[in-house]
């Protein structure tokens, strides 16, 4: 039991120490929201070790809440990329310092075209975070 308990703790995603966890907890089970969590062999075909995403429709307050959480997580970030529109960041890409040899990425986007949609993604990867980010963004051509 001790062994499983200890291993369980070791297997917990590093996302648990981040502020964005509060956003996943707050909105994950709400109506108009899609939350996805992928771990283990489900990610064999991808370059990720852990994947969690949140898509929130027609809820601008959620975007503000997430931006506030991101502002706290941004403090320890290695690299920050963002698009600011009218003084408000609408796209934020954070590369966080690795934890337990895993690189961590937080991706946020707010769009109102064709519908109002907020997307928050948290990724853990063994690969270089910059390469993974490039790969994700290239796919979205």
């Amino acid at each position: 039991m001790l062994l499983t308990g200890f291993t369980g703790i070791q297997l917990l995603p590093a996302q648990n120490n981040l502020e964005i966890k509060k956003a996943f907890d707050r909105y994950g089970n709400k109506k108009g929201v899609v939350m996805v969590e992928l771990t283990g062999e489900m990610l064999e075909d991808y370059d990720f070790s852990f994947f969690k995403s949140l898509m929130i429709r027609e809820h601008p307050e959620a975007a503000d809440y997430i931006r506030k959480r991101l502002a706290i997580d941004e403090v320890g970030a290695k690299k920050v990329k963002q698009v600011v529109s009218n003084g408000t960041p609408t796209s934020i890409y954070l590369q966080l310092p690795p934890q337990r040899k895993l690189h961590r990425l937080i991706l946020f986007n707010e769009t109102s075209n064709p519908e109002y949609l907020v997307t928050l993604i948290y990724i853990e990867t063994e690969h270089d975070a910059e390469d993974v980010l490039k790969l994700i963004l290239k796919k979205n051509k």
Binding site: V36, F51, S53, L54, M55, S91, T111, I121, L137, N140
Partner: peptide, 13 residues
């Protein structure tokens, strides 16, 4: 759903 969430991100361009 995971792919859809990734597709929602704007491309680098």
């Amino acid at each position: 759903q995971a792919m859809v969430s990734l597709a929602n991100l704007p491309s680098e361009q």
